[in-house]
């Protein structure tokens, strides 16, 4: 059935709230307000205040309490209103959620999900627009899921909720209103499986989240010029489907990585390193990265548009390999 990305996320939560009484939501303004981007709209009416919990402005607590409640058997889905605010609860993610299971010798599961919107493009400036998905991939113990379509969002979110590990689920603001076909009812996609969003033979574009949409548009234009690009969406950064990436690069011999986060220490660097280490012989051109510049995100539309990786920049990077 047709749903927007936001509706698909809501649908996944609804499926799980109905299926498992241990599942509950907590976050700021997720109840009456329905979430800053309307993702949780209607859930308070449907499931009541015990399951849909509005919190004060207390990010440390929102994440920290989910570590405790999940270790004690509940299944919290917590929301941080903007990805940027992860910075204020970094200890809870980095030193607690990520490490509890390991430090305790496998004796406790932190089966929590942390949902956060990422992304620029709405003039929200430097503290409300970042894409920080690479940041937490550096902390072993955390799973990072980053869907690019409504169906992927639903299938991966249900899997995330059922997973016994702490999962970070990145939603892109630009896609909340984007429609797509989404399977009804119980629908899961395994975590750690890439998806080829467009088959091609000449170059592999590895990309995720909103940049998948931009890369697909770029690939159409490239096709008109005789370059047949394969667009591969890993869908989860941790665990990463290395095999799928290497297989695609073996086929095309060329790799362009596209992400919205800044270039330096962005996750694209990790993928480039993996391909150089394990797929060097497949390559017949240098690996290229298309990413945001190493600056904070500017407010002015004139600057923000120049900042966000564009279709043109993707096309330019691909063409430079031929």
């Amino acid at each position: 059935m047709q749903m927007t990305y936001a509706e698909a996320i809501r649908d996944a939560m609804r499926v799980e709230l109905k299926r498992d009484p241990k599942v509950y939501l907590a976050g700021e303004d997720i109840g009456v307000f329905g979430g800053c981007f309307g993702v949780t709209a209607g859930l308070l009416d449907e499931f009541g205040p015990k399951r849909i919990v509005d919190t004060p402005i207390s990010e440390n607590f929102i994440v920290g309490h989910a570590v405790g409640s999940s270790a004690c058997g509940l299944r919290p889905i917590v929301e941080i209103m903007f990805n940027d605010f992860i910075a204020v609860c970094f200890d809870e993610m980095c030193n607690q959620a990520a490490k509890v299971r390991y430090m305790f010798g496998g004796k406790a599961d932190v089966g929590m999900v942390l949902r956060m919107p990422i992304g620029a493009g709405i003039g929200a400036a430097a503290q409300h627009s970042q894409s920080l998905e690479g940041l937490l991939t550096h902390i072993p113990g955390l799973i990072s899921v980053i869907p690019s379509t409504p169906a992927d969002a639903k299938g991966l979110l249900i899997s995330a909720i059922r997973d016994d590990n702490p999962v970070i689920f990145y939603e892109h603001k630009q896609m909340y209103g984007m429609p797509g076909e989404v399977p009804e009812g119980d629908y899961t996609i395994p975590i750690g499986k890439a998806d080829i969003k467009r088959e091609g033979s000449d170059v592999t574009i590895v990309t995720w989240s909103w940049m998948v949409q931009k890369s697909l548009a770029a690939a159409e234009k490239l096709a008109a010029e005789g370059i047949n690009a394969e667009v591969l969406d890993p869908r989860t950064l941790i665990p990463l489907d290395k095999e799928a990436i290497l297989k695609s690069v073996a086929k095309t011999g060329k790799l362009v990585i596209v992400h919205e986060e800044v270039k330096t220490s962005g996750f694209g660097g990790e993928i480039a390193a993996i391909v150089s280490e394990e797929g060097f012989d497949y390559l017949d051109a240098p690996i290229k990265r298309v990413a945001a510049p190493d600056t904070p995100i500017p407010f002015s539309p004139a600057l923000e548009q120049a900042y966000i990786p564009s279709e043109e920049k993707i096309i330019e990077a691909v063409k430079a390999l031929f």
């Binding site: 400036a125 430097a126 503290q127 409300h128 904070p296 407010f299 002015s300 004139a302 600057l303």
Partner: peptide, 10 residues
């Protein structure tokens, strides 16, 4: 004030 880099919130 911020050369357009900040906007209302900054």
């Amino acid at each position: 004030y911020c050369k357009g880099k900040g906007g209302s919130m900054h």
